[in-house]
Each structure stands twice: as structure tokens, then as C-alpha cells.
Design a protein around this nucleic acid. Structure first.
Lengths: 196, 196
DNA sequence: CCTGAAACGCCTCCGTT
DNA sequence: AACGGAGGCGTTTCAGG
């Protein structure tokens, strides 16, 4: 099992503030050679820590429909399904799900049809209540801090140890505690993909 | 006043999915030369559309305290202050504020002291109620769609027109509808900076 | 606002420690 | 794991349309 050391965290902090910084500039900052930085960044991607290099867009200067904050309180156990259906909507940008089946999402909807759009995306039998509010401000300050690498098995939920395995499926890295959890997950995933 | 054309949106979409893509690769994709792409990206940064190049980190594979979703309902008009104080906390990653003075934030707090940490950051006189819930899932799918460039004056709230001005302060781009709004805002900003 | 060519810098591969 | 060098690609600058 890999670990995150202090140098990895420094590299992540630099990439968070400027992901286009050259490897040689990063290398100078952390005291390594450019190939070493390249290797580490590649490893961080393989580990699934870095999901992708992207860009922080200021949506407050863009006009594109109405930005809303949607809060959905699901019936017990319905959280993951609600999260999945909101995440699948093209109007959605962020989705957060809590352990008590509350899901908060930000969406950009056509001006007059906010409620309709949200209802269309949800299975209302699983929803206790929902609220839609106009969004008026947002901030984002990503940071790594002193985080350590500690993935959970997506099949059984256990923390992944030295013997763990991982697999990249459709561009996402999934972690497993053992080979049987991995094959169970992959089989299930393939079955669901074929149905769709 | 600048505008966003279809090519700008294509470039933004490419950068959202991979901000390390080379200018020449982007140039091939959108049918321009590398210098033209470089110029456009520089312009998007000056316009404040691109805030920074960053990296999408999968926090679910990192262990770093407890991730929580904090929902604060403020008294009338207190939303912006609550937003600012939560955004200033180092534990905070995302903050969303609605027009009716509700603020939702995601934070990573030390295990035992979630409530304490949040209370320390807030002016409780301005808070009607707040809730702290354990975060268990998140998604992010940034996209540009058909957005147009339409900044609002940070001083008076009007939409900025051809005659608008902009200024970069502390790395952030601010838009103004006219020179007097700009100088009013800059004066106010400098006064507040000196006090702190 | 864009293109094209040229100089420069950076990235990657690979052999080595 | 990381370094160092060589080859090749990417970026930037500048003149020109």
C-alpha cells in the first residue's frame, strides 16, 4: 500500500493553486528533480488521489440560467439513490450526501422551471421533503492539510490495507480490500453497465 | 466588454476535463494555432472567468479528520457575514449562500470537536439555527454549457456593460459598472485591509 | 485577432547510483 | 526512489496579414 509523504502533500498544494505549473518549477519548490516530480504525480493519479486536472471557473461572472441550492431529505436509506439521480442530471454541479440521507446539490436550471426540473430528476417516493433556494454566493478553497491515504473498500467498506487492490473503471479509480471484493464489484458493475 | 464565444467555451470544456492539456493539443481540438489558444486562455483569466488551474482531489480516499456538512440559517441579512466567516476558517472547503441567508459549508474538523469548531467560527447572534451532519458522499461535475459572460458590479449590483472596468485585487478579479463604483470599492477594500 | 517560423525551455525516456 | 543527460516536443515571441 502506498502512503502520502510530506513531499506528496507539498506537490498537491502546489497543484491545487496552479495545476499548470511546470514539473521543473515544482521540482525546484520541493527539492527534487523534474522526473521525480513526474513520477510522483503519476503515482498520485494511479492511487486515485488526483482525479483530474481542472480549472476553477468563477460562475458568478457567467449567466447561464438560475443557480439554485437543492436540499433533499430522503427516507431512511434513500440517500445514495438520491445522490446518484441528482449527480446524473446535467444541470448539477455539486452533490453532497450526509449519513442521515440528506442530499444537498447545486444546479443551474432554466429560469422558470426550477421545481419541475428537480422533481423530474427525483424518485419522489424516496423523498421526505425538498427545498429549492436561489444561490447567491459561493467559495471554494481546496487544501490538503495533513491528510493521509486511507481508502475504503467500495464493496465492503473496510479500510484498505497493504494487500488491497485497485482498478480504474471508466476513468475512476476504485479501491478494494481483497481480490474477492474486487471481482464482486467488477461483476456487478459490468452487469449494470450492460443493462443500461 | 468582452464576450464568450463558442471557441472560448470549447477551450473551457477541455480545460475542465484536463487543465494540463498542452496549448498545441487544445489548438488542434478547436482549430486554432497554439498562440491563439494561449491568448484566449490569458484573456479568460483576465476576465476573471478562469480563477485558477487546479486539481480535483478525491477526498474519499484521504483520512483527515471528519468531513461534515454545516447548514446555518442566519437572521435576515446576515448571510454574507456568515459566508465570510465560514470561508475564512481553514477547515472549510466549500461555502454556498442562498438569497434567504442560509449558508451551507463543507468542513473537515478534528474528530471530537465538530460543534465547538463551528461555534468558534460563527457570530451566534446572527444565527437562527445551525446543523452539523456527517458527510458521506460527494460528486463534482463542472461544466460550462452555453454560459455567457455577464458579471455584476460588486459595488452596486448592476450588470456590467461595455463601459465596465475590472481590477485584480489579491489575485481575485472584481468587476465594476463604472469608475466611481470601482474607486468606492477599492477605497473600502483598502480601509478594511489596513484595519486587519 | 490570428498565423507561421524560429529560438528557447521543458518533458520524457533510460541508464545509473 | 531519485538523478542526469539526450532527444524530441511544446511554448513563446515576433513579424506580418
Amino acid at each position: 500500500m502506498d502512503e502520502l509523504d510530506e513531499t506528496d502533500r507539498e506537490i498537491l498544494d502546489i497543484l491545487l493553486s496552479d495545476s499548470r505549473r511546470s514539473y521543473s518549477a515544482i521540482a525546484d519548490a520541493v527539492g527534487l528533480s523534474p522526473p521525480a516530480v513526474s513520477d510522483r504525480i503519476e503515482r498520485l493519479q494511479e492511487m486515485g488521489v488526483i482525479r483530474r486536472f481542472t480549472v476553477d471557473i468563477d460562475r458568478s461572472v457567467l449567466a447561464q440560467g438560475v443557480p439554485v441550492l437543492v436540499t433533499v431529505t430522503g427516507v431512511s436509506g434513500a440517500g445514495p439513490d438520491i445522490e446518484a439521480s441528482l449527480a446524473a442530471a446535467e444541470e448539477t454541479e455539486h452533490v453532497f450526501r450526509t449519513v442521515d440521507d440528506t442530499v444537498v446539490a447545486t444546479m443551474t436550471v432554466r429560469a422558470t422551471s426550477a421545481g419541475e426540473t428537480v422533481r423530474d430528476r427525483l424518485d419522489l417516493d424516496a423523498v421526505r421533503e425538498y427545498e429549492i433556494r436561489l444561490l447567491d454566493g459561493r467559495d471554494w478553497q481546496p487544501q490538503v492539510g495533513d491528510a493521509t491515504f486511507a481508502p475504503e473498500c467500495v464493496e465492503c467498506g473496510n479500510t484498505v490495507t497493504e494487500e488491497g487492490e485497485r482498478e480504474r473503471i471508466d476513468g475512476e479509480v476504485y479501491h478494494f480490500c481483497c481480490a474477492s471484493c474486487k471481482s464482486a464489484f467488477v461483476d456487478q458493475y459490468e452487469r449494470l453497465s450492460e443493462e443500461a
